[in-house]
């Protein structure tokens, strides 16, 4: 029986390792593909003995790829800051105050989370069109400036902040906004990390709404720029892979920095419910 368990243990570990390797394979292939010359790309399954920077040079020569990277960085960073501020502020109000209409707001939020975003796409486009915000970053950012998911996330974490702390601050003469800014936000640091990453990823990877709103290629963000690149240079796989690699790299780096907070934040709402 003891031997049986020992064998089982080895098998489980081996299986998990194999599964992890399989999961990582496409990403390893992606990295390898960016570093191969067009001749080597399919000649070697993974890395070629001779590394080449051809794909990256080709990418930046054929399209203003740096432009798209700057655009995406600008849009995602702005979105994160705006969403972080509005969502944490509302989350604080819903966690720590009793006020008229609080219940109604909570129900409203829950019901919008059930509604698929695409339902509103057509009228939203019409509205943005009337506001003259088509083909602008304002049209991209303003409709998504508050994240309902973010409000829930912050409400959840701010509920844990002891009320005594807030009362003490009030007695010391802190205004409500100072309480939010100087006490609640510093305590919520882990949740801020998680939310920033979730919000950044959401904006960075978003495709449909930017595709509808943005027309001028100078304003394109990475997903729509890359999609356009596929249409233009369909057979230049190496160049496409270089573009894909540079598009996913920032998110991966950010994730490495905020990993712990991220997983905690992701599951907070679900597990503690």
């Amino acid at each position: 029986m003891k031997l049986f368990y020992r064998v089982l243990r080895v098998l489980v570990n081996l299986f998990l390792l194999a599964f992890a390797a399989l999961t990582l394979t496409p990403m390893v292939w992606l990295v390898a593909a960016t570093l191969k010359s067009p001749d080597d790309l399919f000649h070697y399954t993974f890395f070629a003995p001779r590394l080449s920077t051809f794909n990256f040079r080709d990418l930046f020569n054929t399209v203003p790829f740096h432009r798209y990277m700057i655009n995406s960085t600008f849009v995602a960073t702005t979105m994160v800051i705006v969403q972080l501020f509005f969502s944490s502020l509302a989350g604080f109000a819903l966690a720590k105050y009793d006020f008229k209409g609080k219940k109604a707001i909570m129900i409203l939020m829950l019901s919008t989370m059930m509604l698929p975003g695409q339902v509103l796409m057509a009228p939203l486009y019409e509205l943005i069109y009337r506001m003259g915000l088509v083909d602008s970053y304002a049209g991209l950012i303003i409709p998504g400036a508050v994240s309902v998911f973010g409000i829930f996330l912050f409400r959840q974490s701010i509920l844990q902040v002891p009320d005594e702390l807030l009362h003490a601050a009030r007695i010391d003469g802190c205004s409500e906004f100072r309480i939010y800014w100087d006490i609640v936000m510093p305590i919520s640091r882990p949740m801020i990390g998680a939310f920033c990453l979730i919000s950044f990823m959401g904006t960075w990877n978003s495709f449909l709404w930017p595709q509808i709103i943005l027309h001028n290629t100078d304003r394109f963000t990475l997903p729509i720029a890359l999609n356009q690149l596929v249409g233009l240079y369909q057979q230049q796989y190496g160049t496409l892979m270089a573009g894909t690699f540079l598009s996913v790299l920032p998110v991966i780096v950010l994730f490495m920095l905020l990993q712990k907070e991220f997983i905690a934040g992701l599951t907070a709402g679900a597990v503690k419910g």
Binding site: S206, F207, V248
Partner: peptide
């Protein structure tokens, strides 16, 4: 490792 593919957006 298992989670990592989710970092890549659907477009990429």
């Amino acid at each position: 490792a298992f989670f990592s593919p989710n970092l890549l957006g659907q477009v990429f």
